[in-house]
C-alpha cells in the first residue's frame, strides 16, 4: 500500500463521499478534534477536512462536493493517491467526564461529531445527539450515530425523517423537558452554529463550536483562518478548530468565509 492511497471510497446518501486513506504517520497520531490538509493533485488547493476515523494505518474523511476543490477530490477513485495529506492538525479534544453532552450536528457536520462522541463515550459521558438536515437523504452515518449515543434525535426541514423543524427547536424542547445538559458541542454550517450558540448562551450551557474557516497552511503561518475570539485574534488551525462558541464573533466569521465567493470556479473556469 502506498502512502495516501485511497483504500476505499463510498458514496453516501446525501451525495458526499467517505474516503479511507492509507497513511500510518498521520493515522497513529490522530485523535478526535484533529483535521488534515488535503491536496488532491499537484497544483490543487489545500483543503482542510476533519479526520473521522483513525486506526494505526488509515484515516477516513467524509467530504461534501460543494465547490471546485471538494469536487476535484470526489473525482479521485480507489487506488489513486492524494498528492498530499498533512496532519493531524488542530487541537485534540480534551476528553473528560462532563456528565451529559449534547451534540448538535448539521448536515455533513455529523462526520466530525462521530469521533468526538466515540471518545466522550469512553469517559462515561451520557451522549445525546441532535442531527439536523434538509431531508432524510441528508441524514448520513446513522449506524455510527446510533452506536455512540444514548439518545439520538433526528430533525429534517421537510419532515421526511424524524421531527420536522430546525435543530434549535429540538434543542429547546430537550432542555425545556428538564434534561440537564452539562456541555454542548456543535458542528455544522456557520449560521447553524451561531444560532445554537445564541440559544445555549441563554441557558448558560458551555458550548464548543468547530470552526470551518478558510485555511491555507493549517500550522499558524498565514492567519487566513483567524477569528475574533473574546475581542482577540485567534487562529482556528492552531487554537481550534474546536473553540468556545460563546466567545466567537460569528458575524465576522460569516463574512470572512464568503470572502472569495466572487472568484468561485465553475468547472475550473472563472464565472
Amino acid at each position: 500500500m502506498k502512502k495516501n492511497e485511497i483504500m476505499e471510497k463510498k458514496k453516501l446518501s446525501d451525495g458526499s463521499y467517505l474516503f479511507k486513506i492509507y497513511n500510518p504517520e498521520v493515522a497513529k497520531n490522530s485523535y478526535a478534534g484533529n483535521f488534515v490538509i488535503v491536496i488532491a493533485k499537484d497544483g490543487s488547493e489545500r483543503i482542510p477536512l476533519t479526520i473521522m476515523e483513525y486506526t494505526d494505518e488509515w484515516i477516513s474523511i467524509v467530504i461534501q462536493p460543494i465547490g471546485f476543490s471538494t469536487k476535484e477530490i470526489c473525482f479521485l477513485e480507489e487506488k489513486d493517491c492524494f498528492s498530499g495529506i498533512m496532519g493531524p492538525l488542530g487541537k485534540k479534544i480534551e476528553n473528560k467526564k462532563y456528565g451529559t453532552i449534547l451534540f448538535v450536528a448539521g448536515g455533513i457536520g455529523i462526520a466530525p461529531v462521530i469521533p468526538q462522541m466515540m471518545e466522550f463515550k469512553k469517559t462515561d459521558n451520557k451522549i445525546i445527539l441532535i442531527h439536523g438536515a434538509r431531508d432524510g437523504e441528508h441524514i448520513i452515518l446513522e449506524k455510527e450515530s446510533k452506536k455512540y449515543t444514548d439518545n439520538y434525535i433526528i430533525c429534517t426541514d421537510d419532515g421526511s425523517m424524524g421531527k420536522k423543524g430546525l435543530v434549535t427547536n429540538a434543542m429547546k424542547e430537550l432542555i425545556e423537558s428538564g434534561e440537564k445538559i452539562d456541555h454542548i458541542v456543535t458542528i455544522g454550517p456557520l449560521i447553524m452554529m451561531k444560532f445554537v450558540s445564541d440559544l445555549s448562551k441563554n441557558y448558560s450551557i458551555p458550548t464548543t463550536a468547530s470552526l470551518n474557516t478558510i485555511m491555507l497552511d493549517g500550522t499558524g503561518m498565514c492567519g487566513s483562518c483567524r477569528v475574533e475570539y473574546d475581542g482577540e485574534v485567534k487562529f482556528a488551525c492552531v487554537d481550534g478548530p474546536d473553540m468556545d462558541a460563546h466567545k466567537i464573533n460569528f458575524d465576522v466569521l460569516l463574512r470572512r468565509n464568503a470572502r472569495f465567493k466572487s472568484l468561485e470556479l465553475v468547472n475550473g473556469e472563472k464565472k
Binding site: 497544483g43 490543487s44 488547493e45 489545500r46 471546485f68 476543490s69 476535484e72 491555507l216 497552511d217 503561518m221 498565514c222 492567519g223 487566513s224 470572502r259 472569495f260 466572487s262 472568484l263 470556479l265 475550473g268 473556469e269 472563472k270
Partner: peptide, 26 residues
C-alpha cells in the same frame, strides 16, 4: 491579509495564475 497569507497565496499556491492554479486572492 497578513503578508504571509498574501505571499503564500501568490507564490506557493500561484494565485497569480488563477484560475489555472485554483487558489484565489483579491
Amino acid at each position: 491579509y497578513s503578508a504571509n497569507e498574501f505571499l503564500t497565496r501568490i507564490n506557493l499556491l500561484k494565485a497569480y495564475k488563477f484560475p489555472e492554479f485554483k487558489t484565489p486572492v483579491i
